[in-house]
Amino acid sequence: MPVKVLIPVPLQRLTKGQETVDGSAGTVITLIKDLDQKYSGLAERICEGDKVRRFVNIYVNEEDIRFMSNEETSVKDGDVVSIVPAIAGGC
């Protein structure tokens, strides 16, 4: 069972409309770089270099990686990773 990655609506254009994609185990940053091979442009939207952008949060099984090991937080098969950008619309 691979890592399940939940893609937010604004980034689903890059994943051909898919709301969930499969990723490979490792760390958060290797997972993102790996996904970028398949879905070009994804890493740049989420990260600046090797750092996750500060208005994007990443959760491994509901836990915010900022309170674990940040980009080095490990992900294993069966984990669910959520990418959650800040949104501001109220209109």
């Binding site: 500060r54 208005f55 949060n57 950008p85 800040a86 501001a88 619309g89």
Partner: peptide
């Protein structure tokens, strides 16, 4: 939750992106 607002232009508004 979100330490900083995104830089202008990076996250579209409803006006630009729809809702």
């Amino acid at each position: 939750l979100f330490e900083e607002p995104p830089p202008p232009g990076l996250v579209p508004s409803c006006q630009e992106a729809g809702v």
